[in-house]
């Protein structure tokens, strides 16, 4: 029947269009990754891994901002500490602080520090000119190293922000070791269906 052949052709065309649309949406799912990064970059959320160009270095002597330094270690047998836990700076003032890392193991290890800010809004005004977080850091066996961060705070920082926290987390570089993918044993014994008792 001519009509049914016509419909079937139209159907195939529709199938093609819809399949293409589906494929585009699948690609879009992955495209969300760079889109998300771009949004974060524009909104200055979670994108702090590059040195920044500083244009305005006028120091605002009229106020001081407390900058707190924080450090975290994840799955790395290192110690990682800021030399000072907090300092006070004037916005626009170029400041250097030092973090110290010690590799407590007898083997060389590589880590990557990831910075983060609290409050998130402050990230927009925190400019790092030099930071150990721009690249991965390799530490020899038992090596201790002091690593500087050079930064300034944009004088355009909103007046109501009086404290900024700069926090780093050092991760073992994936591939440079075997990251733990097993859930740690817990404090709660869960042998109701015969799992062994947990200890630490």
């Amino acid at each position: 029947m001519a009509l049914s052949r016509l419909i079937s052709f139209a159907n195939k065309q529709m199938l093609g269009k819809l399949a293409v649309f589906t494929a585009i949406m699948f690609a879009f799912g992955f495209a969300l990754v760079p889109i998300y990064k771009k949004i974060c970059e524009v909104a200055k959320v979670n994108d702090f891994m590059r040195p920044e160009q500083v244009k305005n270095t006028q120091v605002d002597l009229s106020r001081k901002v407390r900058v707190e330094f924080d450090s975290n270690i994840r799955n790395l047998p290192w110690t990682f500490k800021p030399e000072k836990t907090s300092i006070e700076v004037h916005p626009g003032e170029l400041t250097t602080v030092v973090y110290e890392v010690h590799n407590t193991t007898g083997r060389a290890m590589t880590g990557q520090a990831v910075p983060s800010y609290g409050p998130t809004e402050a990230a927009d005004h925190f400019r790092k000119l030099e930071c150990f977080c721009f690249t991965a850091q390799t530490f020899k066996a038992s090596e201790t190293r002091q690593m500087p961060v050079v930064f300034l705070i944009d004088p355009k920082l909103p007046r109501d922000v009086s404290t900024i926290t700069l926090s780093y987390t050092f991760f073992e570089m994936p591939g440079a070791g075997t990251p733990s993918t097993q859930a740690p044993a817990g404090k709660l014994e869960t042998n109701m269906v015969g799992t062994p008792r947990q200890a630490s």
């Binding site: 819809l18 949406m25 799912g29 969300l32």
Partner: peptide, 9 residues
């Protein structure tokens, strides 16, 4: 068809 591919991704 707009969202299932995104979940799959």
């Amino acid at each position: 068809i707009a969202t299932m591919p995104v979940l799959a991704g």
